[in-house]
Amino acid sequence: MSGYQTGVLVILCFNIIAAYAVYLPLAANQLNLGIAGFMAVGAYAAAWLTTELNWAIAPAVLVGGGASALVALVVATPILRTQGIYLALATFALGQVISAVFLNLEVVGAAAGYQVPAYAPAPAVFAATAAIVAVVFYLSRTRFALYLTALKNDATVSELLGLNVRALQIAAFAIGAAIAGIGGGLYAHHFSFIEAQHFNVALSITTVLYVLLGGTQTVWGPLVGALVYTLLPEVLRVGAGWRYVLFALFIIGFMAVRPRGLVTPDLGRRLGAMLMRRARPGKAVP
């Protein structure tokens, strides 16, 4: 694998992790527009642990994810009181606040950024991404995911059915934050340098965009969204200076043709039926 290919795959991995961090709360109808802030918490916490306390990378990254989840739990009570567009605004503001805190925090370099000597090579990033994807796919088959979908369908009736709506929302928010934190910690140790400005609004918003592009109704959506979002600009390099114009046109085209995302449950069923037909040509599925 060339250096370029490895580089693209690593970016893809970080985008996939970020996508699932956004997807989990979104599965409970919460739009988190401050995901970059949670990545920053994980990145700085893990980097500080390996640099100042000489921790090994793996535990440091996990604790970074835990720190991010902890921040989510602390802010969940005030933030999850808001709904819809107001929740998006509140998380947006939170992301800004977190980024501003690190911009002024001297122990981790403040505005000058923070050097991270401990290095996580590409294969470690691949393995961690695979593990996160596996965990999210496992979660999607549990009752927890079923209840989140119920909540997304109709929060009022979910409450009448006795589901603990509040606890489910907080859990989805915190697990999403933990994934973002782990992604941030990996990022810090792969690129060996972090600065507060990296974890900005644009990062939060583009992540949400490609999750929406992939589709939020199935667990495959964020994966496909991240794939398309990462790889399409690379393919479009043939367009030279026009590639981002082409890319934007593609995105608009995708959203026009598939407004509920590239991957929908309906698409899954149709693919399933097609495979069945192919496997058993004699017995056509109506």
Binding site: L146, T149, A150, K152, N153, D154, T156, V157, S158, L160, Q217, P265
Partner: peptide, 10 residues
């Protein structure tokens, strides 16, 4: 107030 995007079994 059926949960319309879930299956009947779900």
């Amino acid at each position: 107030r059926i949960l319309i995007s879930l299956t009947i079994e779900e």
